[in-house]
Design a binder for these strands. Structure first.
Length: 660
DNA sequence: TAGCCTCGAGTTCA
DNA sequence: CTCGAGGCTA
C-alpha cells in the first residue's frame, strides 16, 4: 500500500478521534505535520489526489448559485407537541392505529437540535453529495461546504450498503456563536440572531473557506433510502450511524410514554448545559416495522413527534422607550414591550442599558424585536427584525434634562452612561433610600419600594436620617397603612438601629463601596467618626481599595450634608461602631461558594453561618475557593470547580463542617 | 502593562 | 446572572 494511502488512513483516524469522539490521541502539531506530509506528496503528483483526501476539505469557491438536488427519499419535518398532554395524545393515537390495546409502546427520545438539516450521501464508502433539506423534495447541493465540517467523515470504514444516506443537523455551538458575533461586532458587521441562523448562514456560503472558518459540528439521527433490512429499530440505526464514524447525540430508550415524558422533562431542565441550542426533543417509535405500519402524512411521519420546550425566545414590539433614574443618578433607557410570554412569564419591560446599546442595535420605538431569556431570568433584546420595519418607527434620543427633576444630565467622558447629578432628584433619593433599607443593608422589613416612594413624594422623608424620626401619625397618613402595619414598621426601624456597622456603611451607598469593601473598611475603622479622618494612603493599603474607591470615600465623608445625615442618625440612636468580635472563627479565612438548591439551609442562612464563623462567601468559583457546597441540581459552578480541582462538598458535609 | 479576579451595580416578574 | 471596570499580580 502506498504511503499516501497510509497517511490518509491515519489522518482519517485521528480526525475521527478529535472531532467525533472528542478524544484526540496525538497533539495538534503532530496532526499538522502528518497533514503537511500528505500535502507534499500529493503536490508532487496531483493525479493521486482523491476527493476523500483530508486535504480536500476546503475546496474552491463556487461562483454560481447552489445546484438543486432531488432527495431520493423525502426529508420530512415533524409535527409538534406543545405540552405533555399532547405527548399522551400522540401515544394513544398511535396505539389505536396499531391496534395495541393493553401493552406499552417503546420509544426513543433524542434532543432536538436547533440547527440546519442536511443529508450526506456516501457511495462505495466515499462522501459524494451533501444537500440541504429544502422543501423536503428538492434541496441544494452544499457538498463543498459540508466537507469542511470536520466531524463529518469523508470516507467510511466498512460498507454495509451503498449508497448510504445519513441525515442530521448542522449546528454551531453556543460558545462558537458568541465568539463569532463578538468578532462581527468588532468588524461592524450585522450580527446573527441565534446559533441556528448562524449555522444556516455559514452552511449556505458560496466560499467554503468561510464555512470552514465557522467550526460547525454535525450530529446525525437517521437514514434516507435504506436498502439494508437488518435494522429492526431506531436504536439499531443510531448505533450503526455512530459506529460508522458519525457524531450522534445522547438518546434514551423508553418503555412507555410516561418514561418518555420524564426524559423530555429531564432534557428540558438540562437544556442550558448542552454545548448547542436544543429547542425540544424528538420522540420516535423505536420499532421500524411499526414505523412502517404507521406511515406518514404529507409533510411529517406519523411515528414521530417533536416535543417543544417552553420557548426562551419570542418576538414582540417596542411600544415605548422610557427612562429610569437609579440611585447613582444613572439615567437608563428601558423598552416598554407589548406583553409577551417567554418561558412561562409575561415580559413587559427590558432594559436597553444605555444609548450606545440602542444605537448599536439600531433600536427604534415601534420596532419588532426578538427577545431572549437564557439560563437567567432577565429579558434581553437580541435584535430588531429589520424586515418588518414600516418606516413609521421613531428614533430615540437621549433628553438633555433629567426626566424626573428636569436638571441637566451629563455624560462623563469615556462612559456610556448619562447621569443626573442633582442630589435632590426625587428619583435618586427614592432609590438611595430603597438601597439603605434593603435586605442586605439595614434590612428594615415592611418598608418596601412602594412605601418609600409614597414617603418621598409626600415629603415625609428626604434622607436616611428621617427614617428614624418617623412617628405612627406620619405613617398613618399614607395609603394602606393601618395601626398594625405602622406599629410593625416602627418596630423594624427601631431594631435596625442595632445593625452591624458594615451594613450601615454599605447602606450609605458610597460609590464603589459595596458589601465586601464595607466589611474591610469596618475592620480597620471601627467607628464612623474615624472615617472622617481617613486619608488616602491608609485607605489604599486596604485590600480591594484603590484610587477610585479611596477618592470616593474621602469625598463622601468631606461632604457637609452627608455628615449632617450621619450625625442625625447617631442622635436618633443608630449604632455607629463595631462590636468587638470574639476572636478567630472556626472557618477563619476559608472561602465558600454555593451552587444548586440547598434543602437543609436557605442561601441566606448558609451565608450567615459561614460568615459568623469567620469564613468568606463568594458568588463565583475561582482557584482561590476552598469549598464549593453543592445542593440539588448544581449549576455551571460545579463543572468549573471540578476542572479547577476545588473541594466540592454536599450539604451534609457542610453541616458537619459548621458543626450545627 | 496585560490579563486575571473580584467587586459593584443594574435588572424582571410573581 | 451578567457585564463592566477597578484592583491586584506577574
Amino acid at each position: 500500500m502506498s504511503e499516501i494511502d497510509d497517511l490518509k488512513k491515519l489522518l482519517h483516524y485521528h480526525n475521527h478521534r478529535y472531532y467525533v469522539l472528542d478524544d484526540p490521541e496525538i497533539s495538534d502539531g503532530e496532526y499538522d505535520s502528518l497533514f503537511n506530509k500528505l500535502l507534499t506528496l500529493e503536490q508532487r503528483d496531483p493525479s493521486l489526489i482523491t476527493p476523500d483526501s483530508p486535504t480536500q476539505r476546503v475546496g474552491a469557491k463556487t461562483s454560481e448559485k447552489f445546484k438543486k438536488v432531488e432527495h431520493r427519499k423525502r426529508m420530512l419535518s415533524l409535527s409538534n407537541a406543545m405540552n405533555v398532554d399532547e405527548l399522551r395524545q400522540f401515544d394513544s393515537r398511535i396505539k389505536k392505529d396499531l391496534n395495541i390495546i393493553d401493552s406499552d409502546l417503546e420509544y426513543i427520545v433524542e434532543p432536538k437540535l436547533d440547527g440546519f438539516s442536511v443529508e450526506a450521501v456516501y457511495e462505495n464508502n466515499v462522501f459524494v453529495l451533501g444537500s440541504t433539506r429544502g422543501d423536503g423534495n428538492v434541496g441544494e447541493d452544499i457538498t463543498n461546504n459540508l466537507k469542511t465540517v470536520r466531524s463529518i467523515p469523508l470516507s467510511l470504514p466498512n460498507i454495509l450498503f451503498t449508497p448510504l444516506e445519513v441525515r442530521g443537523e448542522v449546528v454551531m455551538e453556543k460558545k462558537e456563536f458568541e465568539e463569532l458575533n463578538l468578532m462581527r461586532e468588532n468588524l461592524g458587521e450585522q450580527l446573527f440572531a441565534n446559533p441556528r441562523n448562524s449555522a444556516a448562514g455559514s452552511i449556505r456560503q458560496l466560499d467554503p473557506k468561510i464555512t470552514a472558518s465557522r467550526k460547525l459540528k454535525a450530529y446525525f439521527y437517521g437514514l434516507g433510502i435504506t436498502v439494508n433490512k437488518s435494522f429492526k429499530t431506531q436504536e439499531d440505526i443510531l448505533t450503526y450511524i455512530n459506529n460508522s464514524g458519525f457524531k450522534i447525540t445522547e438518546f434514551k430508550k423508553c418503555r412507555d410514554i410516561e418514561e418518555v415524558i420524564k426524559e423530555c422533562k429531564r432534557l428540558e431542565n438540562l437544556r442550558n448545559d448542552f454545548m448547542f441550542e436544543i429547542d425540544g426533543t424528538v420522540v420516535k417509535v423505536n420499532d421500524l416495522s411499526k414505523q412502517n405500519a404507521l406511515g406518514e402524512r404529507s409533510r411529517s411521519p406519523r411515528w414521530a413527534i417533536a416535543y417543544k420546550f417552553t420557548p426562551q425566545e419570542a418576538t414582540t414590539r417596542i411600544v415605548n422607550i422610557v427612562l429610569q433614574v437609579g440611585r447613582t443618578g444613572v439615567v437608563t433607557p428601558v423598552a416598554v414591550l407589548e406583553p409577551v410570554n417567554i418561558s412561562g412569564v409575561e415580559v413587559r419591560r427590558a432594559t436597553l442599558h444605555n444609548i450606545d446599546e440602542i444605537l448599536k442595535k439600531d433600536i427604534r420605538i415601534g420596532d419588532t424585536v426578538i427577545i431572549h431569556r437564557a439560563g437567567d431570568v432577565i429579558p434581553k433584546i437580541i435584535k430588531v427584525v429589520l424586515s418588518i420595519r414600516t418606516g413609521d418607527e421613531k428614533q430615540f434620543k437621549m433628553p438633555k434634562n433629567c426626566p424626573v427633576c428636569d436638571s441637566k444630565i451629563v455624560r462623563v467622558e469615556d462612559e456610556s452612561a448619562y447621569r443626573c447629578l442633582n442630589i435632590r432628584c426625587p428619583s435618586v433619593i427614592k432609590e438611595k433610600i430603597k438601597h439603605f433599607v434593603s435586605r442586605r443593608a439595614m434590612n428594615i422589613e415592611g418598608l418596601g419600594d412602594k412605601l418609600v416612594e409614597q414617603m418621598v413624594d409626600n415629603k415625609i422623608i428626604k434622607d436616611f436620617s428621617d427614617i428614624y424620626t418617623l412617628t405612627i401619625e406620619k405613617i398613618k397618613t399614607l395609603e394602606r397603612s393601618g395601626d398594625k402595619s405602622s406599629a410593625n414598621l416602627l418596630n423594624a426601624i427601631k431594631s435596625s438601629k442595632e445593625q452591624d456597622l458594615q451594613r450601615l456603611v454599605y447602606g450609605l451607598g458610597i460609590r464603589h463601596i459595596g458589601e465586601t469593601i464595607s466589611k474591610s473598611l469596618v475592620n480597620v475603622y471601627k467607628d464612623i467618626s474615624l472615617f472622617e479622618n481617613a486619608n488616602k494612603d491608609d485607605l489604599t493599603k486596604i485590600k480591594d481599595i484603590g484610587n477610585e474607591a479611596a477618592d470616593s470615600i474621602i469625598s463622601f465623608f468631606s461632604n457637609k450634608q452627608n455628615l449632617e445625615v450621619i450625625s442625625q442618625m447617631q442622635k436618633a440612636g443608630v449604632k455607629m461602631c463595631m462590636e468587638t468580635t470574639g476572636g478567630e472563627g472556626l472557618l477563619q479565612g476559608k472561602r465558600f461558594a454555593f451552587t444548586g438548591t440547598l434543602s437543609l439551609f436557605s442561601r441566606v442562612l448558609a451565608r450567615d453561618t459561614v460568615e459568623d464563623l469567620g469564613g468568606i462567601t463568594v458568588s463565583s468559583v475561582s482557584k482561590n475557593l476552598d469549598f464549593l457546597v453543592a445542593g440539588d441540581q448544581p449549576g455551571s459552578k460545579f463543572k468549573i470547580a471540578e476542572k479547577l480541582g476545588i473541594k466540592i462538598i454536599n450539604e451534609d458535609k457542610f453541616k458537619e463542617l459548621v458543626q450545627l
